[in-house]
Design a protein around this nucleic acid. Sequence first.
DNA 1: GTGAAAGCGCTAACAA
DNA 2: TTGTTAGCGCTTTCAC
Lengths: 338, 338
Amino acid sequence: MTKKTYTIVDLANLLGISKSTVSRALRDQYDVNPTTREKVLALARSLDFQSNHFAAGLRGNQSFIIGVIIPSFSIPFYSIALEGIQQVASQYGYNLIVCQTGESFTNEESAIRHLTRSRVDGLLISLSKDTPNAQHLLKLKQRGVPVVLFNRVVRDADLPRVLIDDYTGARDAVSYLVGRGHRDIAHISGPCTLMLGNEREQGYLDALREAGMESCRPLMARSDFSIESGKKAMLSILNGSIKPDAVFCVCDAVAFGAMEAIKGKGLRIPDDISVMGFTDEPFATLVTPSLSTVCQPIKQIGEMATSILLEYIRDIRGIHNRKEEILETRLIIRDSTR
Amino acid sequence: MTKKTYTIVDLANLLGISKSTVSRALRDQYDVNPTTREKVLALARSLDFQSNHFAAGLRGNQSFIIGVIIPSFSIPFYSIALEGIQQVASQYGYNLIVCQTGESFTNEESAIRHLTRSRVDGLLISLSKDTPNAQHLLKLKQRGVPVVLFNRVVRDADLPRVLIDDYTGARDAVSYLVGRGHRDIAHISGPCTLMLGNEREQGYLDALREAGMESCRPLMARSDFSIESGKKAMLSILNGSIKPDAVFCVCDAVAFGAMEAIKGKGLRIPDDISVMGFTDEPFATLVTPSLSTVCQPIKQIGEMATSILLEYIRDIRGIHNRKEEILETRLIIRDSTR
DNA sequence: GTGAAAGCGCTAACAA
DNA sequence: TTGTTAGCGCTTTCAC
């Protein structure tokens, strides 16, 4: 029933030559008689022959697969980053196996185990919000598995990584709010384990300090990266002792949640409270009012992380020659800030 | 530098037994002396041994990989479906290689070639909007590659598939609008090649007919699945000879675009025009006003497609015993309809 | 209960 | 330029 899938031995027998010659002809990289090569190629085409990637990989001790670990498919940032990752990967003949952790450290660890067992040639990782430290990553490093981190890292993760300048992005955003006359600027920050959360918070604090303003507890709340938690955090600020006239959120999703909370209280955006997000996901333009935010070059982050990983894998760059790439952000003002 | 990765031969040598025994012990599925097994397992644990998936696959002629082809990571439907797919796949020890076509038929064909070359054990496919027919899929079928289609199919695709009842979903939605007193209901439909577009359009037409209303050209426009095209289509309707008091859109993204167009014209939603979407993506609740829509069990679609594919792969169901699964939708009324 | 040996499909010395 | 041969790491007869 099932049509047989051909092997190079089949081709060799059909042509009355050896399988080595077939193998060589197929990869045109060796001295093969042009006539022979043509015959092989023609037969391969007509039989729709596809050489077995895995057998080749087993032999050459590589799988041509890159493992990607992300917190969730449903975070638009990762959808877009994945497009960049896939583009570069497939350009070099690599496939992707993508695992999502659902923001759980345990799942992250098992994903790593899973992928190394599948003998991926390298790993692209964006940490879960629950990941407390980089122990599991350092183990990978010791084992010599090429790893590049992107977007979400923890402080002690001494591995190649592609990040954005979270600190400056946040400081610029808050400075902008200050410049527009806001006095009581609230901040909803991210999980304290991830560097991105700390950096953005520090940017917020420094922007206030530079303006001679005090930061104060009642205007600060912590969330994760979900809409729901953004809503809750905003509510707690709104119910606090000081009424904010602006809020800077650790990410767009949290900003969306904050907007819901603000509207729910019958307050107007931006008249009563300005809202500033971070990332510039596609939906930032679609909410009402459209969201002012700090734009990240998302796709480029994915592309760059992949390029660097491929440099390690293809041994262009020594594995212990750690590389860090910091990309710039850009402030985008829309209608949620006055 | 790089720590060696161990093989079963290493374990065997270390323990002074044969690699066959190690192999058997590791898979606890054969008669192995409990003591021996314990020794093997203990050593494997302490060495952090991970058996080579591909070598096993090469031997057993399977890769434990499922290929997934989707139009784009950035369509929320697929992010969610992917979660369901991954959940079921990993439960059975399968990995996912995901390719996106970017809505291009050419890319779809090359993704298929790519994945079969990688010897995936089966394929989960949702067609691109440009795919004109099912020729390429039938070729897969002839080659005996297990394939399950989901969500987006073309009419002549005689393969196992998981769909929703697009027709009924659409008819119910439009009937609801009729029942709420709307008289001039517009429709923005999808690409005419995909069944989903035709079915939803037919549901729209039949709902009107049942109510004794005429459908008319000026109230119908075609789009793809993008926000931009939804906006453009809505604009063309708005500039037409008949002013609609409601619009039923082929999907949520198109509805978001339509909402932008309507607002841009200074019209109010739902007071002047009601808007109805299809799918119930997460952002349906976040736009203003929140979007009334037809809810699909997205994650369940992914889970079910994967379960069925696995049945074929694991030969529980004969490959020529085609199976079609049609899931129900549910109308969700929010604030975009009056 | 365990070992020896063959073989999955491919690549890469090494010979010819 | 081509063929022979060994072997990647694993599973699975077939003996013992």
